[in-house]
Each structure stands twice: as C-alpha cells, then as structure tokens.
Design a protein around this nucleic acid. Structure first.
Length: 899
RNA sequence: GGGUAUGUAGCUCAGCGGAAGAGCAUUCGCCUCACACGCGAAGGGUCACAGGUUCAAACCCUGUCAUACCCACCA
C-alpha cells in the first residue's frame, strides 16, 4: 500500500475514530494497579452545536488525556451534556412561537413533553461533533444533567442541604427577568454601560415652601419611594433629616432619613429610596425600618400606583412620570449620564430588581472551605493569576438564589401538605423528599403538592464531578472511590464563578474533598481582528468547516499552538493553513523514510555512527524532555511549538538531508544503520505529537510498523494484538547521552559553515546545479578535526565538489570569503563572482563585527564586570571579542586583495 | 471604585537576567531523486514610555500611558 503524495485527512480520520470506538480504546474501569487520571467534560448545553470555544476546550482536554494515557495512567474522560435551563427553554419557546403558540397554550406537562422530544432529536449532535474532533471520551459513561441518575443526585443534594437548614425560602429583592419570567442569581446578570439620563427632581417638604432635590436614573420608581436618604455627615441636609416630604404625583408622606451609604459627592447628595426595586435602597430600608412598596410586577408592568400609571410598562411609565413632573415644574434638569445596566445573560432583557419569594442556599460555610482549599493549594490554578479573583469572589459571596420560575429543569423536591381544595396547610411543615410523601407527619393528611419552581441549572452542574460517577444512587461505589477527586478541570474563565467555584463548594460539602486538583484556565478564541466570535457579529469560524477544509489534526494543532494558559488567542485561516502544511510535512518526511524501508530486511539497533546521529539523538532527548514537562504543566502551546520546531527544522531540514548520503549508499548495512535512527526519532516524535495530532500520527505509525494492511484496510477487531501508538505506557525510551552538549556544539560549527557557504551561493546567484570548490584556511586548529571528519556534510548540503584544508593559505583570485568558527573559507568563483557585490557584502560584515568589538570591549573594560560577573561569562565575552577581531582582520586582508 | 492580564519585526505570537526569535507576509534564487501544503537565502525591531535595582534588564521593582476582560450597593 502506497502513501499518497499529499496527506488526505478525511478517510484517515473516519477510519481511526471508528477503530477506536469499536475497540473501546477509551473505555475504562477502576484498576487496582494503575493510577487513575480523570477529567469530566464541561458539559455543553444540549442546545449547542460545536463552536470554536468547544473545539479548543475539548482539544486541550483530549491532549491531556492522551498524554496521560501514554504515560501509563488509567485515563478516564467522561462525556455528557447539560440541560441548560433557561437557555434551552428559550430555544424551544422560540420554535413554538413560529407555530404561533406559547408554552402556556400547551401547559406545563405538554410543554415538557415537547422539550424532551426535542432533546432526544437534537441533544446528541454536539457529542457526535466531539467524535469528529477525535476526542478520546469514554462514551459508555455519557451523562446528561437531567437523566435519571443525575436527577437522583440533584434531589439528594437538595434534601441534604435542606436538612442542614442551609436551604431556605424567603421573600427578598432578586434579579428578575421580565421576559424569561424568572428570578436569576447575581452572576447571571451581565452589566453593561448604557447611555441614559440623570433626572433632578424636586421633592417638596410638608408644610413648607422648601424642597429637597434628588437625582435619579429611574424616575418611574419614584412612585414606590418610601423615603429620601442623605449622608449623616452632610451638613447641607443635617437640619432636614427627620422632616416629612410630600411625594409628588403620589402625595404620600415620606421621611428624610440619614444613611452612611449615601455618597455626598454624587448628584445632589440626596437619594430617593425605592426599597422594592433597588438593591441599595432595599438595604437602606432595612436599616431604617422603611415601608416597602412594590410597584413593578413580574411582567414589568406598574402596580400599586396612581390609576393613571397602573398597568403601564416601565418605559412608558418613565416617560409619563417625566412629563408630569415637568408640567408641575418639579423637574429641575436632565443630565446626560452613562451608567451600567443589568441584563439577563440569556436573553439580554433589562433586569428588574423586585421582591419575590424564592429559595436560597446559604453558601457561607462552603465558601470558606473553598477559600481554604485554594489557599492551601489543594486546588491549584494554571495560570496561578486566577487564584486571587477566585478567592475574592468566594469571600464576597452572598446567598445563592437557586429557584427559577421556568419549567425545564429539576423541579424542587419540596412537598406541601394540602387540603381538599389544594390549599397549602400552613400548620404542616413542607417536606423535602425523593418522592411525594405518603403521609403528612403532623396532620396525617395524604394530599401533597410539589413546589412549582425548578432549580438553577448550575445547581446540577455543580454536582457534575460526583454525579457522573453515580453519587446520587450510591455514595460508596467503586467508580466514585477510584475516580474522585478528578485530576484536572479544563475550562474557559467565563464560567469560573458560575460553575468552577460551585463545584468546589459542593465537592467539599458532599464528598468532603475537592472535586479536582488542578484548574486549567484557557483563553477565549477570538477572530483575526481580536474580536470575540459571536453569531451577531458574523465572525464565527465553524470548526466543522475548518476540519473539512484543513483536517482535524490541523485544527487541533493550531488551537494547541495558540493555547497559552489564560491567554486569549486569535485564530484565522492562516494559522490553520500553517498547521495543515505541518501535517503534510510530517506525512512526506514519513513517506520518504517508509519508502526507503523496503527491502532492507528489518531495522537494527539504534547505534550512532557519526556526528549527525549523535546530534539528532541529543536534540531529540532535549525535545522530549521539554515536551513532556510542558504537557505536564498544561503548557500545551510550548509542547506544540517545540515539536514543530524540532521536527521541521532539525529533523527534516538537517538530519534527513544529511542522512541521504547513507540512505543512497550501496552498502545495505550503512543504509540500515541510518534508517534505524531515522525511524527511532520519527516514532518518538510521532508519539510525543500524538496527543495533539492523533489521526495522522496513528496512521503513519502503522505504516512505519508495516502494519498498515492489517490495521488500515481490514482492521477488524481481531487486530488487537498490534500495539497502537496510543496504547498505555507506550512511550519509547528516550536515549540520553552524556556527551549531548559536545554533539550539539560540534554540529553547530558544521551548520554555521554550511549556512555561510549557502549565503554566498545565494547572494552570488550561483545555481544549485553548479558545484564549487572550497578551501579551508584553518585559524583555530582545535576545530579542524571535527570539520574535516564531517566534510561530506558540507559537500552534500552546500553543494561543494571538493574541500581542501591548509594553513596560511592566501586568498585565491576571484574567490568569495566566509569567516566562520575558526576557519577562513575561500570559494574560488572564476567567472561567477561579482567583485563589487563581494566587496559590499564584506564591508557590511565588517560593520557588524566592529559593533561586536565595541560591545564586548566596553564590557571587558568595565572593572565591575570583570570583578563581579561569573568566570564563564567573561570567557564567553573574550571569545566573542577575539572572534570578531579575527574576522575583521581577515576581511580587511581580503578587501585589500580585491583592491 | 477595585482586580487581573496584555503592550516585542507589517500581522499572529514565543522568549522572562548574560549577543533580539518563530510562523505568516515581503524580496531573491530553485520543479535538488519525501514534500512547491516544498527547498535555500535575504531584508525587517531605541522589545509602549519614564525612573530604579544589577557588573549586566525585553526580562526584576516603581510609576505613567494604552488595550482587553472580570468584580462592585456609579442613586
């Protein structure tokens, strides 16, 4: 079976993923010998289809999992999806709307049926797309936050917290989305700056001509004012505190109160207080024992207000109030003003703070424990800079509003004892339970109604690392014991608080143990111009399209290469193209080697026989070490770049080129010897690269091993005896050598010489077909042997016909000069040389050498440097100085010679 | 108001105490028996600015200025 000239990813990818699935390559069970390495996927919403953010997130996880597998860990990566609460309900509501229906037309039960049906039809799309990405997930463990097992976990967690008294119900000021018709938690509100106005309004004092001026961005809420507040230290208002105001338009009597929170410098220093619709005002009201009047209902309409305004929506009410104030001469001025407005993170509607009866979770103790864990480095951040904001957030956390007034989600498992008419019996205590209770504990009644609300979708997400291992049905099961705590959580920073922090809190609460040791925070994928990708901007790049066009490995490589921990990245076709070219380079280098394996009767031992061999083995050892430690610390970008550089520049451009002399050799043993090394380095590199580019490396691996007939064409499950590239503990041993540095140093001398000759060839426009002669005038005898021994390299790569060595050789006529690493190299170029060009070239080199002399001299003349710098450093500088001096000397001689 | 990052070649980014690097783009030469998705070579940078520490700073410290994101009870 021949390899194609250009790598064609499509067939290869399909074949291999199918093979992995059919052979259960990623299926895993607890194992008493091997250590586990576990990741739970950040479950994408069932609404979603794969976007670049998912592609990045899952590529990184897959890289980590595959690397750990190679290292010998029993790796487990659990897939799944999130029911996505409000977001998902909104999608289905929109579909209904197209048919001209609302969820109320269907009713709760029918609507949920529709939702489930829709979920069954579309919910797994994203999982299939993850397969296309090549993710090594254990599909047998696929979980869904609303499946039976996960639902059990949710109920169990709720009941436990309820039993501890940490969950309570209360009427509080909450964030309300009038469109979604539900309360939201504090972090589900997104703040955005918006241009608006600051209205200055006169509030007349009772029985007086005096008035106090308040400034507000929400004039319509004045209808619900129950006080005006000033700062107790504000001398302007000291004598007004305690006085009564007649609230305009409403004619209610309200008091002027003093409260420290009022900023004297803002506006007029006097604040109207609307406790029912503003968080600050609510606190002022609590401190000052003020009445709370609700004037906006859950639909965003005015209520409990003078008839004229009753039923108006907020925006209309604002206009009306402003007009009325104006006509009564109570509006002093309107200032342009920009302030931040809260919006629903799911639909963008302006949030209305209002009083509502909700379920809350007291998170005080859990937060403290999470902070402790972070401070003790039990949860460790990559990069560490995320720790501080994380801790700060936890420390200032308020109780979590966990109830939502939607239908899609986990219904709150609280049951109320009701009478014949379905009315709640106030004397009987509500019960939290897995199922409807049989009998009321206090009145022995048998009729119950379940709480109408559902839980915040993030409540079930917070249980994910436990619930996927069936914590819900059995706390002591083997999987949970073995895989929990998981090893690392990889995610973008946008859900650090929403999800990551809460998993830690719940993990500590229920398992008494953090859910993961490492928190790997990666950046956000941006477009070419640095903008966040979004549908509305029309700048999204579809990863599926990218995979089709450039190949999955190319997509993965370009994401990996850009994924420095914590940093956002810009992605475009150019980066995919570069990665695709890399894949093709790997393919062709491998193809070249594989072609040459034919007929050599197997490979031999890896035994270096000359400098290039020593050198590439040394370089590979260095690369392998760096790459492994980079994977280890989630510096995936570094690993990718190291491999790219090593493979392309060192392996292909130098080693393969140098090996060609021996590959073409008539002597079979010589050929075999060099191919053994070529294959060893190739296989080693493929393995190190396989976490990032699993498909192409797997395919080539089989070709190299000569297994491709078996594996690729009819790989039926019987072929399991052949070790795959991604088998556990299959890292090839890295040959470390004691003389690593010597080989690298000696090689660099040869490389420098080759490069300098090539430069001359290029600048003198000498066709590659023309072989030229080189004369080496040895300046530094210690380097002679090395270069002489490797003269064939110079001949091969610099296209030199013959090399002469000598001492005190004068520059031949019409020759070009290169001074490098202890040699003066003359290239006789009779009829080819352009004397003027040569002069210009040499003059330029002199300038550079001159600068070098100045730099090094000034250092050596600095007493402090000579006294305090380490010996090695001083030696280096001296060497540089002498090299530059020789160079100038030699070039000057030549210039004189040229006339 | 507080916090966190980031400012290095035209673009995307590495480097984080001892001579400024890569890829793409540009220019020149090559269809060299693996690859034109390629090979060889060249040009291109007061490493945001100002101080400081150090024999030595793109790298450490301080401040300033940009940019991005996050948090906050900006009426």
């Amino acid at each position: 079976m021949e390899m194609e000239k250009v790598y064609n990813p499509k067939d290869v990818e399909q074949k291999w993923y199918k093979y992995w699935i059919e052979n259960k390559t990623f299926a895993v069970k607890p194992d008493s010998i091997r250590k586990p390495f576990t990741i739970v996927i950040p479950p994408p919403n069932v609404t979603g289809s794969l976007h670049m953010g998912h592609a990045l997130n899952n590529t990184l996880q897959d890289i980590i999992i595959r690397f750990k597998k190679l290292q010998g860990f029993n790796t487990c990566w659990v897939p799944g999806t999130d029911h996505g609460g409000i977001a998902t309900q909104n999608v289905v509501e929109k579909l209904l709307k197209k048919e001209g229906k609302t969820k109320y037309d269907l009713g709760r039960e029918k609507f949920l049926e529709t939702m489930w049906q829709w979920r069954v039809e579309t919910g797994d799309i994203i999982l299939d797309q993850l397969k296309k990405l090549g993710c090594g997930l254990d599909w047998d463990r696929t979980a869904f936050t609303m499946d039976e097992e996960r639902s059990k976990a949710v109920k169990k967690a709720f009941i436990k917290l309820y039993g501890k008294g940490l969950i309570y119900r209360g009427k509080r000021l909450v964030n309300w989305c009038t469109r979604c018709g539900t309360a939201l938690s504090d972090i589900e509100v997104e703040h955005e700056n918006e241009k608006s106005s600051l209205w200055h309004i006169k509030y007349p004092l009772k029985n007086s001509d005096e008035y106090i001026v308040v400034a507000t961005t929400r004039p319509e809420t004045m209808l619900g004012d129950t006080a005006v507040a000033v700062n107790p230290n504000d001398e302007r208002y000291t004598k007004l505190v305690g006085k009564t105001i007649i609230l305009p338009l409403v004619n209610r009597e309200i008091k002027i109160v003093a409260d420290y929170i009022v900023d004297q410098t803002f506006g007029t220093g006097a604040v109207k207080v609307t406790p029912a619709h503003d968080a600050t005002d609510y606190e002022i009201a609590k401190r000052n024992d003020l009445e709370i009047i609700e004037i906006i209902d859950t639909k965003g309409k005015m209520m409990n207000v003078p008839g004229k305004y009753e039923g108006m929506n907020v925006a209309d009410a604002r206009k009306a109030v402003v007009e009325d104030l104006l006509s009564q001469d109570l509006l002093i001025n309107t200032e342009e003003y920009s302030h931040s407005v809260g919006r629903c993170y799911r639909c963008g509607t302006t949030i209305e703070p209002l009083m509502s009866e909700q379920w809350f979770l007291n998170v005080g103790e859990m937060s403290k424990r999470a902070v402790d864990a972070a401070n003790k480095e039990e949860t460790k951040f990559y990069p560490p800079s995320w720790k501080k904001p994380y801790v700060l957030w936890l420390e200032n956390l308020r109780d979590w509003c966990i109830s939502r007034q939607i239908w899609w989600g986990h219904r709150i498992p609280v049951y109320y004892c009701v009478d014949e008419n379905g009315q709640k019996k106030t004397d009987c205590k509500p019960v939290a339970a897995f199922e409807t209770p049989k009998e009321c504990n206090s009145c022995k009644g048998t009729k119950f109604s379940q709480d109408e609300d559902v839980l915040d979708t993030w409540f079930s997400s917070a249980l994910w690392p436990m619930s996927v291992f069936n914590w819900g049905s059995n706390e002591n099961n083997e999987d949970l014991k073995y895989f929990y705590p998981t090893s690392v959580l990889a995610t973008g920073h946008e859900i650090l608080y929403l999800w990551v922090a809460r998993m830690v809190q719940f993990g500590l609460e229920f398992m008494n143990e953090i859910p993961y040791n490492d928190i790997f925070i990666h950046g956000i994928v941006r477009d070419k111009s640095g903008k966040k990708m979004s549908k509305s901007l029309g700048n999204v790049i579809d990863p599926l399209g990218t995979m089709d066009k450039f190949g999955t490995d190319a997509l993965r490589f370009s994401l990996a290469q850009a994924a420095a921990p914590g940093r956002d990245m810009q992605i475009s076709d150019e980066s995919f193209l570069a990665a695709r070219n890399f894949a093709n380079k790997i393919w062709n280098a491998s193809r070249f080697i594989i072609m040459n394996l034919e007929g050599i009767g197997g490979l031999g031992e890896v035994k270096p026989s000359e400098l290039a061999d020593e050198w590439i083995i040394a370089e590979f050892a260095n690369t392998a070490k760096k790459v492994k430690s980079s994977y280890e610390s989630y510096d995936i970008d570094t690993a990718a770049r190291e491999l790219y550089d090593f493979f392309w520049t060192k392996y292909c451009d130098w080693y393969i080129e140098l090996s060609k002399i021996r590959i073409m050799s008539e002597d079979k043993e010589v050929k075999k010897q060099v191919l053994s090394i070529l294959v060893y380095i190739l296989k080693g590199t493929l393995q190190l690269l396989s976490p990032i580019m699993p498909f192409i490396t797997a395919e080539i691996w089989e070709f190299v091993n000569g297994n491709y007939e078996l594996r690729i064409t009819n790989y039926e499950s019987t072929a399991t005896d052949v070790r795959q590239i991604i088998a556990e503990s299959s890292f090839l041993p890295v040959i470390a050598r004691s003389d690593t540095d010597t080989a690298i140093q000696e090689m660099s001398v040869v490389q420098e010489i080759i490069t300098r000759i090539r430069t001359i060839r290029s600048e003198m426009n000498i066709s590659p077909a023309v072989q030229i002669e080189a004369i080496f005038n040895v300046l530094d005898g210690s380097k002679k042997a090395n270069v002489q021994n490797n003269a064939s390299y110079i001949k091969q790569l610099a296209k030199i016909s013959s090399i002469k060595f000598g001492e005190n050789i004068a520059r031949p006529k019409n020759s070009a000069l290169a001074v490098a690493s202890g040699f003066e190299i003359f290239l006789p170029l009779e009829g080819l040389i352009d004397i003027e060009k040569e002069k210009a070239r040499l003059s330029k080199e002199i300038v550079l050498a001159q600068q070098e002399i100045e730099r090094t001299n000034s250092k050596l003349q600095n007493d402090n440097f000579v006294k305090r710098a380490p010996e090695i450093e001083i030696e280096k500088i001296k060497a540089r100085l002498s090299e530059a001096t020789t160079k100038i000397e030699k070039i000057n001689e030549s210039l004189k010679f040229l006339g």
